[in-house]
Each structure stands twice: as C-alpha cells, then as structure tokens.
Design a binder for these strands. Structure first.
Lengths: 214, 214
DNA sequence: TAGATTGTTAATCGATTAACAATC
DNA sequence: TAGATTGTTAATCGATTAACAATC
C-alpha cells in the first residue's frame, strides 16, 4: 500500500467522522454512500473521494456506491485506530485537562495513561480518573508502559526542555499545543497545534469586514 | 494590495512569532534578517520569504536583508493586529477557560469580552477576570459591543444551534473548537480547529513505528 | 571591487479537477 | 435497457522552487 500524504490523512479523518454522523445507523443496516454524496458533504470533488477510496483499498460497486461500514473499517485499518496507543500528557492545566477529559479521542485509538505537572500543588489531584504525577516519574512511566506518544500542553518556556526529556526516554511521536517551535531529530514525528496561526486568518477577515476595499 | 491566501497568512504568522523570538531585542536596536536566515528557521525556501515580504510591502536592502522591526510592523498591519477586536466565547469548560485565560492571544488583537455557558451552576463564576454569563445575555452583549467574532468551545450537540444564534445576532467570523461540521451562509467566515484530525496523523505514524513495512 | 542579497521571472512539481470508458 | 456510478487517465491549476539579473 502506498503511503498516505498529509492531505489524504486529513480527508480520511473527515470521511470517518462524517460517515459515522450521517450515514451509519440512520435507517439501514447496510448503509451505502456514493462518492458524490460524500464529496458534497465535505465540499470536495467526487473523483477525489474515489481516489481516496482506492488508496485505502475500498472497492465500490458500480451503479450503487460504497459500503459505509467497509469504508469506516478500512479507514480504521489504514490510520491505525484498530490498536489503542498509550500516551503521556505533560502539563495538567486547563488545556491539558480538557484533552485528558475528552472521551471522543478514544474512538481514534488514543489512550492517555498518565498526566504530569511541574507544579507540586497539583500532584495527586485527579482529572477524569487520572492522577497527576510529578515529572520525576516521567521516564519510568514511559518505559514501563512502552509509550511512543507525548502530548505537550505546557508553557512554551519549558516545552523544549521537556521535549528533549521525552525523546531521550523513548518517545517518537509528539503532539505539541504550546506556541513554541520545537527542534527535534529527523526520526521524530511532531505535530504542532499552533492555535495562534488561526488568529491570523480570523483577524485578517475581521479587518476586511471593517475595511472592505483594502 | 493583493489579497493574501491561506498559506501566506499562515507563513506570516510564523514569521511574526519567529522574528519576535529570535531576531528582535537580542543584541541590536536595528535587527536585520535575510530571507535565507528566516527561511532556514522555518524550513522554507528563501524565495518564498522574499515573495511574502513583497506581498506585504516590505522592501529589503540588497546586500543587507530586511529590517526585522519593519517586517513585524507590516505583518501587524496586513493581518489587522493593529486594532483590537472583541469576541464572545461560548462554552466555559476547560478548553474555553484555557483560551480565555491565555494572554498570548492579546498580541494578535484578540480581546475576549464575554464568556457564556448553558450550565446555570457556572453563571457568575469568574475565569481570569471574566464573569460567566447566561446565554440569554448573548444577543444584547454582541449588539452592545459591536462584536464580530464568536468562539465556540461547546459540545458538538449544541454547536449548530448556537452558531445560528450567533449569526442572527450579527457575528460574521467564527472560531470553532468543537468537532462538529457546522453549516453557515457563504458570507460567514469560519475556521475549524478540528483537533481530531491531528490524531489521524499521529496514529498513522505510530502504526508505522510498530509496523515499519506496511 | 567582490561577494552577498534582493526582486522577479521562468520552470517544476504536486495536488486537484475534468473527462470518459467500463459496467452493474 | 437506460441511467447511474465507479475507476482511472489526462488536463488543469496553483503553489513552490530554481535561476539569475540587478545592485549595494
């Protein structure tokens, strides 16, 4: 199977969410969707949808469409949701707490097994079933549980230092919510959720509302 | 001035953050940067940087580079950070609280003036100086303060309904943190922070670690 | 001056869209 | 069957990269 590029993975995620919301369990036990239906929901071209289906090995039925359950299964296989993967979360503030408490992520295989915080006063507190641990426990917990994924919801000042510790302890995939641009070795995969980037678009659009000609 | 596309705005935001971190106030009161320096920091091509500078009207100096302060100023003007813009935030949960409390957004002109929640028990509580108000106050607050931007950190079940109310009340720009795909009229700008999309990439990469050949 | 850097045009690249034969 | 839908190749489009003259 050819590797999936960034855009394809993003589209697959939208298909996955959309199909479960709109096509599954509505009024049929064998729901069917056509490429043009799905394309319309997500504002894509229908041949794009058919290419993506081919990329994950779903065969459609001419004159009928694709089997919605099969599409969902193949997306789960292609993106790896069939196996749960454990993660550590660093920074048990409001954002970290929100991520730890959000159950919707389970659907995608994510299993946050441990929370850490530098603030001594938070140690021992519990967020939706997880006890906040001190950073000294970071390395043993990662090794004991064979964890590959680290989630960073810490202030940008400590983000690089903690990233280095995570990588040293064996973490290979990072999900960064701090505004910091972190440097990591080539073999480490890092996804940044740089929320401030979105503000650029919002601000630009608001400026245009107030100032239509410029 | 030509309109800026999505990618250009995103790059400008990274320039803005990077320049303030790395170039300003280090050891000079007239800091200078070359397109290749900036490009290296952000893993871009240097001609891309020069094109972006041209797009926002910054003139470089041959043999020298660009004036860092001028670049920052022109980005602020181009994206509209020079004027603060007020916003309402709906959903004072952990994520909403994190956004309301994050001061870094002020740098980009964002000013969250009011928090709302459907939960009666939260009404009157305060998050970093903002009192949580009941949803009945939504329309009068938006109109009184001439607010254009609405931030949604509510569960996906109520997201569409609240979106409709916001638009009716005059909101033209939306920042959506719920996983819902919301339908809005063509003249409304909406930016989705669909965090679950990132999980697709993380999961796919973790699968490849465990399973390198496939 | 020579070397370095911008500014801009041309070339390349990759992703998206269009088209259409195959076929149920 | 006729109409609808897939599967796939070709065409288009837009963004990125390369190249290089201008010049401080």
């Amino acid at each position: 199977m050819n590797p999936l590029n960034r855009q394809a993975i993003e589209r697959l995620m939208h298909y996955y969410y959309c199909i479960q919301e709109e096509f599954i369990n509505l009024n049929s036990d064998c729901p069917v969707l056509s490429s043009s239906q799905l394309a319309k929901h997500l504002a894509l071209d229908d041949s794009q949808v058919r290419k993506d289906m081919a990329a994950i090995g779903v065969k459609g039925h001419r004159h009928v469409g694709f089997d919605a359950n099969e599409v969902v299964d193949k997306i789960r296989q292609s993106l790896g949701f069939t196996q749960n993967y454990p993660a550590v979360l660093l920074g048990a503030g409001r954002l970290g707490g929100a991520l730890a408490a959000y159950e919707g992520f389970n659907t995608f295989g994510l299993d946050i097994v441990a929370l850490f915080d530098a603030d001594q006063r938070k140690i021992g507190l519990s967020i939706s079933g997880h006890i906040i641990q001190p950073l000294e426990q970071l390395e043993p917990v990662i090794k004991r549980n064979h964890i590959h994924l680290g989630i960073l919801t810490v202030p940008s000042e400590t983000a690089q230092e903690l990233t280095d510790r995570l990588i040293k302890a064996g973490i290979q995939v990072l999900w960064n919510f701090s505004p910091a641009r972190l440097s990591v070795p080539d073999n480490i995969f890092i996804r940044h959720e740089h929320l401030f980037v979105g503000l650029g678009q919002l601000s630009y659009y608001i400026k245009k509302i107030n100032n239509p000609e410029s």
